[in-house]
Design a protein around this nucleic acid. Sequence first.
DNA 1: AATCATGGATAGTGAAGCTATCCAAAGGAT
DNA 2: ATCCTTTGGATAGCTTCACTATCCATGATT
Lengths: 225, 225
Amino acid sequence: MRLAELSRRSGVSTATIKFYLREGLLPPGHRISSTQADYDEEHLRRLQLVRALIQVGGVSVAGARAVLTAVDDASLDQLSRMGTAVAALPQALPAPAEDDAEAPAAERVAVELQRRLGWRVVPENPAHQALVSALSALLRLGYPCDGEALLPYGELAGRLAEHELALVEQFEAPTTQLEAAVALTVLYEPVLLSLRRLAQAEQASRRLRGDAGAGDGGEAGGAED
Amino acid sequence: MRLAELSRRSGVSTATIKFYLREGLLPPGHRISSTQADYDEEHLRRLQLVRALIQVGGVSVAGARAVLTAVDDASLDQLSRMGTAVAALPQALPAPAEDDAEAPAAERVAVELQRRLGWRVVPENPAHQALVSALSALLRLGYPCDGEALLPYGELAGRLAEHELALVEQFEAPTTQLEAAVALTVLYEPVLLSLRRLAQAEQASRRLRGDAGAGDGGEAGGAED
DNA sequence: AATCATGGATAGTGAAGCTATCCAAAGGAT
DNA sequence: ATCCTTTGGATAGCTTCACTATCCATGATT
């Protein structure tokens, strides 16, 4: 298919597709002549993945390029690629902590937590640094975030990861598996966060109404606001 | 204290503080004369909260203003304010879905999931719309996300919310409680996401090494790279 | 009194993510 | 074959966002 059709089927403007091609987020089409190129289903799928990463996952264009480069890098083995790809995913936490008084304490909490969970501690991991940044902000504001309070979060996260890794392993083709790892890592984030917000709203309204222990009935009261 | 000292103690440049004052993220200082103003500890704390929301929580300036306006709105009761404040928190998911073929299916999955969890369904909730957006992206890419698969996520989210609400209720002063609700909602997001990424890395490396069932021992091997 | 810092206003900066315009060559219709 | 449209590539522009730098009159400091 030509660029125009790719645009029509994906809902992405030709201008934006051209931009992605320029930025290396999308491999160039198969050249048919010096002025025309042909795009296949693989391009369409890749385009949808790019859009999902950027729009839903909030990944930057540069971040998406890094991730997809790792996914496509045939010189690495499967697991290295997966590691690289997932590590390339940005965390929207730019500053780890430069002149941060709470950073050492946050670091200690983070390390202790991971120790308790039985996880290896890899300080270079961007996720580790993001965790330290977030903890440091919490500490600065005086909110409780010791290893004790965070343990349930960690165990929860562990269960999620287990579930997700199992999900990824269902896919057989290596590239498919890599894509799944990236897509699920990124796209389940908003799912998880949304569910947490919804659960908070539900909890808050239950407490407001006073039925503290209202379990899983089908009562579903009227809308509010 | 004067602006310069507020800047020193917070680590935020005077130019940025002025910008926040202009944007209404920070209440004006107590006027000492026509050209000088005095800032107190409350200003410092608010400034730290603003920075945390924006830098760690990834909230936009406009979003932070909306949240803080709700927190400060004395015309509402405690719980309405909390609802408004948390609802004002952006989800970084701008487009709910305009011409999205998967949107109806995603909507159905979202509603069914919440039904199953015993939650009230409030389609106007930004979190609900964010959920639908994310699910729609997953569906478009052909990844599984039926109510069945999402149920564990929902239950997990429910437990988190319960825990967090209890945490918030520890604070007694209404404003403090509101601030805590906002801060914990926003600042625990990166904590949760980071832990999930770390757990994924841990899981992946366990599977790589082949010790599938290495539970929660204190083994915590040496760091690697 | 002289100097200097302060707060307020205004305009400017740089990054990010598109978007619009231009152009020459190819393809299709006549 | 010729005219006209379409295509892909290149370049430059646009918009938003979060700051940042400059200017200025006033009041504080010495």
